[in-house]
Each structure stands twice: as structure tokens, then as C-alpha cells.
Design a protein around this nucleic acid. Structure first.
Lengths: 329, 329
DNA sequence: ACAAGATCTGGAACCGATTCCAGAAGCGCT
DNA sequence: AGCGCTTCTGGAATCGGTTCCAGATCTTGT
């Protein structure tokens, strides 16, 4: 059996309260007492029981981290960075994977809500109101999404799209297709908006291709439609769709970037490995995961940093082999 | 404030104990009482506080899940399946990512050990003894590794290697290189052993290429060495190394599979997308994650299934474009 | 209708911490 | 030394459940 605070108190010849204070608020305790406690703690290898502490303080030292799909390298990267950072704060991370399903998102939050101190939520599908209400008054940091005034960290999607459009325009493209991802996705709407508003100024004509599932098959499925639209360039909601496009184009004898240029989003590992390697908008996953935890930790300590509770992280266009000059007509 | 058991007891006009029993052991309580409790529970929307329950029962309903690298698609897949399964059991999953570091593995286990009911560990780097001792007497399921008689679930690496060797032999290869991964990795040792013991019977000569880091760069770095060994085929510790090999071979003007055939391990998404697509040994990630949780859940309920506490899951060779007939000399 | 036995129930102890409160000890000063 | 003030300390309540135990209630057989 592990040593309890009573054992420490007995060994040190002081009361439980003193032990508790010596550990939690060392300056409220006389130096002599503190030392006796410290010695006893060391001797017994005492560590406070987190559960018991949680019961009286109402804090568990655990946070919930929700992602739509941990198998997606973007989220895996974010989680990895977040979990490393959480360690620094002594926070444990409860992982929840919603499988891209809105109902599951809500469900998971609801069940976890009673065992965590706060949430970092990457919940692109759930409705705004539902999301807001289900968290109750727990501290929450949203990732990759804005809902009202809730603290959140997003990637600068608009700027990423702007870079992509500018890149295409500079290569002489006049018509660009945007292949939309899930209709319910906040990020998708954001990117779509950015495409619409950014294209005009660059003299680009936009064709919108229907909402497809954000995976390889989605890209394959929409490829022929894109081709029929007679565009010379495509911006895909994400890399997987982009890779699907590349693949189907190849099968159809359409060369990339000779006939059509393609830009993805996310910079997943595969994008650098395929040929032609995919030009893509990269997002600072590590920074996102870290910042999410930092922000939540601040919230947990009532230390609201007013400025930084709504960060927007810079995105960067990575030019690879899937984009080139527009074909001469 | 959420309703407590006292509120329920008061509303139902019974004692706390009866409420507790009505919920935990309904058959120890008179039907009439049970119904009153149920009604009160429904009316108040009562849900027992898991922390409080944890304090008296010593069970938290949380398990620790350790992986060496959540950004590795193999582990992401395993975690995803595991977390889904855990939901069925009402278990929450504390994720820990050790970054492939032995010391971190131990460290994470140690800190988590006091807040979980048990562990699913994918800890390929920590030493056997240390691993065994750090878990104390908590239920543990090992993944992808065997340590003594501990319950564990592994992939049938040996059979995967066998299939790979047989495939190469059937294509007429006589010399095969095995590119080893991290020296300290249990899986690596296992695969190496299988290569050694399986090659002879098939008339294959084996060349071992030094231990490299299990990533793209590792493959790139070792490629020239492999080439110098004058083999016609390579089995890589994992796909990332395989992809690195393919890339560097391409740069050196060595064609795959014309000059050299390459087989990887893990079947990560990128392997199917690159060209030539990588022949690889695939492992049932979902099954592994699920089985890990199932096994741990059994352990938690003292329901040891003697037979299945040491499962070995079937692996499958997926033949793609990176393997072909041995070149004529 | 009653005794014996089985079944239910409520009170209270307990899990292991934190924290409030009142009283004790320590301090500086005259 | 004695006073008032600050700083420390220990006892006890509390968090929200579970579970032991003894007593109350219900069955059952006669």
C-alpha cells in the first residue's frame, strides 16, 4: 500500500493539515516543520493521491482532448505536441476520437465532462450552440474553429488560401476549382469563403466542386467533375483529396502539373513522398497543440491572458511539384 | 451544482446506502425501493461522481495507453480502435506518447500509475525488468512485445517475414538485405531473428544492414550501403525506411523493382500512394487496439481468459509495385 | 398466529486528501 | 515580565460516493 498523508503526519509528528500545507503552501508553515515533513515524505516516498485530492478540490489534473480523427496526421501531430506540453503542467490528457461524427463529438464531451478540469476541443462538426452548451462552464479551448467569444486557436486559413491563389495567379492560371470538404466543417466553410473573396482581386475565376469526403476516395470521385469544369488549377480542401485527384488524373492521362496544377492543405507526410509531390498549405501543428495547452492551463489558473485567448497561427504555402505554369491554350 | 447521492436519497425518501445499492446491485433491493430511486435519479438527472466513487472503490474507470509515437500511423490506428472499444466499456483513455524514448516510457508509466486502473503499453524501448517493475501490480497488457508471462498482444512478425521471404524467393531472388531498425526495439529483434531463421530454408542469403532510425531519413542514409552489398532485394524494418530506400535508389538511378525489390512493414497510408507503391507487410491495427482493450477489461474484472491473454495477430503481405522478378545477372 | 430464516434497509465508518476555524506558539516592544 | 499582534498548528468538517454491520421487515412453514 502506498503511504498516505496520515503516515507522513505520524512519522513527522505533526498533523495532517500541516503536512498538506507544507506541500501545497510551504510559506505558511514554519521552516522547521516543513523540513520534518519533507524528510518524512522522502522517507516514505509519499505522493498525494490524486483522486482524493480531486474529491476535495474538485480538480482532477486531467484535461479532455477531442479530435475528429487521430489517424489523420494533422491531428496526430497536434495531439503529440499537446501531450508533451501537458506533461510540463502535470496535466494528464484524456483522448477522445469522435470519428468525424457530430453526435459522437457531443456525446464524448458529455461523458468526459465530469472527469476533467477542462477541454481542448477540435470538434469541427458539432453545432455551435450545442457545443457551447455541452461544455457547461468548464474552461474550453477550441482548436481550428471559432465559436462566439470562446477562447480558440485557429490556423490562418484565409491567408493560406491567399498564398495558394497568389501562387496560381502568378503562374498564369485564370480558372481555379475549389474542391470542398464536408459541408458541416467550419474549416471548410472558412476556406471556401477565403477562396471566394480572394479570387476576384487576382483575376481568378472560381469553380466550386461539390462537397466530398475528405479522403483519397473523395478526391478520386470528384476528379472527373473537376476535369469537366475545364479549369487549369485546383485547390483541394485537404491533401488526401488532392492526392486522390492526382491519382485519378494520372489514370485519365491528365498530367500534373502540365495540364492541371493541384494544391492541397495540411502537408501530410504522404504529400512529400508521392510524385509529383503535392504543393500544399502547411499548418504549424506543434505550435497549435502547445498553444492549446498553454491557453487552457492559463484558463485553469484563472490567469486569463486577454490578448492571446484567440490566436491565429500562420500558415505557409509549400511549393512542390504539383503546381506549374498554366498550360497555353 | 450537479445532484449528489444525498439529493437522490432525500427525494426518494430512502437512505444513501439504498440509492447506492439500487444502482450498483439492483437485485439486492426491493423492487418498490428501486423504482422510487430510479424515478428520483431520472428526475434529478443524477449521475454518480466518478472521482468520489474512485476514492472509495480505488477504481477510476480510466486506463493508460502508452505509445511510442502517436504520429506514426500504425499507433494512431491502434489507438483509434482502442479508444472506440474503451468507450463500450465506459473506460476513459489517458494517452501518453513517449517519443520513442526509453526513459520517457518509464517516466510516463510511473506518473500515470496512480491515476489509472490499468495499462495498455506499447513500450518497445524500455528494458524488460524495468517495465515489469514500474507497473507494480496494476493490470497491464503489452502490445507488440512479449515480456515474461505478461499478457500481451503481438503481431505475428515471424510469419510476416516468412511471407515476405517466400515472396522474394518465388521471384527468384537469392540475396536479400534486412535493414534493421532501432537496436533496442523488441520488434526489430523479432524481425531480424525471423529473417535469419527463415532465409536458409528458402535458399536465401541474408545481408544485415546496420541499425537506422525508423524513418525516411534512415532509409535514405542506408541506401548506398545496401547497394554496395550487391543484393537484389531488401526487407526494411518498416515502411518509412522502405520509402527512404525507394527515394534514394531513384536518385541513384537504380530502378525499383527492376534492379532491386523492396518490402516494407506496417502498411502506412503513404506506401499505397507513392510510386512504385510499396509492397509491405500489413498488421491488423484495429484488431490489435480492440483486443488490447478487451484483454485489459477482462483483467480489470478478474476475469482472466487463460487462453487469450497472449494473442498473436495474423500479418499479411500486401504485394504492390515495389517487388518484381530478380534481375538476370 | 408465530418462530425461524431470508431479505432489506439505514446508520456510520471509510477512502485520502483539503480547508476552515479556533486556539497555541512565537515575536517585538515597553 | 507582560501585552498585543502575527504566524503556526491541530482538530474537525467536507468532498461524494461505497460498504460493513446490526436491526427492521418480509416470507415461509407449521
Amino acid at each position: 500500500m502506498a503511504a498516505t498523508i496520515k503516515d507522513v503526519a505520524r512519522l513527522a509528528g505533526v498533523s495532517q493539515s500541516s503536512v498538506s500545507r507544507a506541500l501545497a503552501a510551504p510559506d505558511q508553515v514554519r521552516a522547521a516543520t516543513r523540513e520534518r515533513v519533507e524528510r518524512a515524505v522522502a522517507q516514505l516516498g509519499y505522493e498525494p493521491n490524486r483522486i482524493a485530492r480531486g474529491l476535495s478540490t474538485g480538480r482532477t489534473g486531467t484535461i479532455g482532448f477531442l479530435v475528429p480523427d487521430i489517424a489523420n496526421p494533422l491531428f496526430a501531430g497536434i495531439v503529440k505536441a499537446a501531450q508533451r506540453r501537458a506533461r510540463d503542467f502535470g496535466l494528464a490528457v484524456l483522448l477522445a476520437d469522435s470519428d468525424e461524427d457530430p453526435a459522437t463529438e457531443i456525446d464524448l464531451i458529455r461523458t468526459l465532462t465530469k472527469q476533467v478540469d477542462g477541454f481542448v476541443l477540435c470538434a469541427p462538426r458539432a453545432g455551435d450552440d450545442e457545443l457551447r452548451s455541452v461544455c457547461g462552464d468548464l474552461p474550453v479551448v477550441l482548436l481550428n474553429r471559432r465559436v462566439g467569444q470562446l477562447p480558440s486557436i485557429i490556423f490562418d486559413n484565409a491567408d493560406g488560401i491567399r498564398q495558394a491563389l497568389a501562387h496560381l495567379a502568378a503562374l498564369g492560371h485564370r480558372r481555379v476549382a475549389y474542391v470542398a470538404g464536408p459541408r458541416t466543417s467550419w474549416v471548410n466553410r472558412e476556406r471556401l469563403r477565403a477562396v471566394r473573396s480572394g479570387a476576384a482581386g487576382l483575376g481568378l475565376e472560381v469553380v466550386e466542386a461539390g462537397n466530398v469526403s475528405p479522403d483519397f476516395e473523395g478526391g478520386v470521385a470528384v476528379a472527373d467533375l473537376v476535369l469537366a469544369a475545364a479549369v487549369t488549377s485546383v485547390i483541394a480542401y485537404n491533401d488526401m483529396i488532392g492526392l486522390g485527384l492526382v491519382s485519378r488524373f494520372g489514370a485519365r492521362g491528365v498530367t500534373v502539373p502540365g495540364d492541371v496544377s493541384i494544391i492541397g492543405f495540411d502537408d501530410i507526410p504522404a504529400s512529400a513522398l508521392v510524385s509529383p509531390a503535392l504543393t500544399t498549405v502547411s499548418q504549424p501543428k506543434d505550435q497549435c497543440g502547445r498553444a492549446g495547452i498553454d491557453l487552457l492551463a492559463d484558463l485553469l489558473n484563472d490567469r486569463e491572458r486577454p490578448g492571446s485567448s484567440r490566436a491565429s497561427l500562420p500558415t505557409r504555402l509549400i511549393v512542390r511539384a504539383s503546381t506549374g505554369p498554366a498550360p497555353k491554350l
